[in-house]
């Protein structure tokens, strides 16, 4: 073995060397993905595009990757960071992420430049699903949660399922990705600046869609208050729903039981792992966060 081989000097054996390709029967893999572009969308959000392996491109809407982010400071990052996919571009073999810079992991991720390689493990978790009987779905996203709803809206659009996307944000600059959602269906932006993002107002919009029979299923991500309201409406009107959830993770694969959240089935509470039993869950079973 020479000094350039992984074990001699690299503290973690990862990040600097291309991992061996995983066997075909294994669904996820660690892969090094070259950064194609990485640009700020506004003061807080960045849009990252990487070239992805064939296995990574098999990612389903709502699934995630566990990213090894570069360190933003002189310390090391000891956990990977789970990140859901914003757009799957199979034609060009690319995966896109849209994320908010909030902590050390995302600040480190933001330092990646075109040509750098991002170490990703995935695809992981259970994603969104579409019932062939649904003619029209409603997706409701708040803040960075909007990004997670991108791929399911894409998929619905491709399958001629109508999509109404209600995108909630602080102000106009933070309604990201409305182009992507416009390709899939109709977009309704609601903002804090003009008060239209108030839960009561969003509820009115949803009630209107239900009355027009344009809500066969609900999808949401990003706001607990909006989730609670959507869950309540879903229960009253018997509309099936799915929610994508977040939690601090360690392994991202199931064994460590770090990323649990509370769910309730038939009045009994239980903890489920967001990484493997989710991150997408039945809306009526989720308790919230």
């Amino acid at each position: 073995m020479t000094a350039s081989e992984p074990f001699a000097s690299d503290p973690f054996m990862v990040g600097k060397h291309k991992p061996k390709d995983a066997p075909a029967h294994i669904s996820a893999e660690e892969s090094l993905c070259p950064v194609v572009s990485h640009a700020w969308v506004n003061a807080q959000y960045k849009h990252l595009v990487v070239e992805a392996s064939a296995k990574a491109l098999a990612v389903a809407p709502g699934q995630f990757f566990n990213l090894l982010c570069p360190s933003p400071d002189v310390g090391e990052l000891f956990f990977r960071r789970p990140q859901s996919v914003y757009r799957i571009d199979r034609k060009h073999g690319r995966i896109e992420f849209l994320y908010k810079c909030v902590g050390r992991g995302t600040r480190g991720l933001a330092t990646l430049q075109k040509g750098d390689a991002l170490n990703m493990v995935g695809p992981l978790g259970k994603g969104f699903w579409l019932d062939p009987a649904w003619k029209h779905i409603v997706v409701l996203g708040r803040g960075v949660g909007i990004a997670t709803l991108g791929p399911i809206s894409q998929l619905a659009g491709e399958n001629n399922v109508g999509v109404t996307a209600i995108l909630s944000a602080r102000d106009k600059d933070f309604v990201m990705a409305d182009v992507l959602f416009r390709e899939a269906g109709e977009v309704i932006s609601v903002l804090d600046t003009d008060g239209s993002s108030a839960v009561e107002n969003v509820e009115k919009i949803l009630a209107g869609l239900i009355a027009q029979q344009r809500a066969d299923a609900f999808f949401t991500c990003g706001s607990n208050r909006l989730f609670q309201m959507m869950k309540r409406l879903g229960k009253v009107h018997r509309i099936p729903g799915q929610v994508a959830m977040e939690q601090v993770m360690a392994c991202g694969l199931g064994p460590c039981y770090v990323c649990v959240r509370t769910f309730e089935v038939d009045g009994r509470q239980e903890l489920r792992r967001v990484c493997i039993e989710g991150p997408v869950f039945d809306m009526q079973e989720a308790v919230g966060w």
Partner: peptide, 18 residues
């Protein structure tokens, strides 16, 4: 098990209480 968050990163590794 214990209430989340159940783990946190620290320099040199992690602490957990699952």
């Amino acid at each position: 098990g214990n209430p989340p968050p159940r783990a946190a990163e620290v320099e040199g590794g992690m602490i957990n209480s699952i």
